[in-house]
Computed example of a mutant assay.
Amino acid sequence: MRVTLTVPETPSEAEREAILAPLRAYNIARGGDPKLRPLAILLTDENGAHQGGLWGKISYDWMFVELLSVPEALRGGGYGSQLMARAEAIARASGCVGIWLDTFEFQARGFYEKLGFSVCGQIEDHPIGQRRYFLQKRLVA
């Protein structure tokens, strides 16, 4: 088989799937079923409008928190802690070993550390002059 490299101007979901399919097959063959489960916990106002929340997934016995967003007007009201507590409860009920996430230096490292997370990696100059941190919290010893 002969292949070439192509770079689409606007990558599509079908192109993402073309990349993901062989990787998924390889991972399942070697690591077993990841039992992938998406997760969303929404902040919903009295009118039913979503005002932020948490987005993540459970895969291979760990929860990954991809997004945590609390609008400026709601910050300081404990919503971030509530979102993370609910995520942790779901992770524990799902038998997860732990939770991991990443955050930029200008975001919420201290917030996550107060919740029991510890830094397990970092990237310097991402963005330039800043750091990106990777944190984890083990739920099972």
Rank of each mutant, 00 (worst) to 15 (best):
15 E>Y: 12
39 L>V: 11
7 V>F: 10
98 G>N: 03
14 A>D: 15
1 M>C: 14
80 G>D: 00
110 G>K: 07
42 L>V: 01
66 E>K: 00
84 M>P: 00
124 E>I: 05
61 D>F: 04
44 T>K: 15
92 R>E: 06
95 G>R: 11
76 G>M: 07
124 E>Q: 07
34 P>I: 15
73 A>S: 11
86 R>P: 03
88 E>T: 10
102 D>T: 03
105 E>I: 02
140 V>N: 01
58 I>M: 06
42 L>K: 09
140 V>K: 05
29 A>G: 14
29 A>N: 15
68 L>T: 00
69 S>Q: 05
117 F>L: 03
14 A>W: 14
129 G>E: 07
42 L>R: 07
35 K>Q: 10
14 A>P: 12
104 F>Q: 06
83 L>H: 03
20 L>N: 07
127 P>M: 09
96 C>A: 09
76 G>D: 09
118 S>A: 04
105 E>G: 04
55 W>F: 02
74 L>K: 05
63 M>Q: 04
57 K>V: 14
35 K>G: 09
141 A>N: 13
8 P>A: 14
104 F>V: 00
106 F>Y: 06
43 L>G: 10
107 Q>H: 08
50 H>W: 13
46 E>M: 09
133 Y>E: 02
72 E>I: 07
20 L>D: 10
12 S>M: 08
14 A>H: 11
49 A>C: 08
82 Q>N: 09
95 G>S: 14
4 T>K: 11
83 L>P: 02
103 T>M: 08
133 Y>G: 01
5 L>W: 15
84 M>W: 09
136 Q>L: 04
141 A>C: 06
129 G>C: 10
95 G>I: 07
115 L>I: 01
17 E>T: 15
110 G>D: 10
90 I>D: 11
28 I>L: 09
132 R>E: 08
138 R>I: 02
56 G>D: 03
95 G>D: 08
33 D>K: 12
25 A>P: 05
34 P>R: 13
82 Q>R: 09
2 R>K: 14
26 Y>T: 09
101 L>F: 02
88 E>D: 10
127 P>A: 07
58 I>S: 12
33 D>F: 08
73 A>I: 13
123 I>D: 10
104 F>W: 04
137 K>H: 00
30 R>M: 06
33 D>V: 04
89 A>I: 01
25 A>L: 13
28 I>A: 11
41 I>M: 11
94 S>C: 15
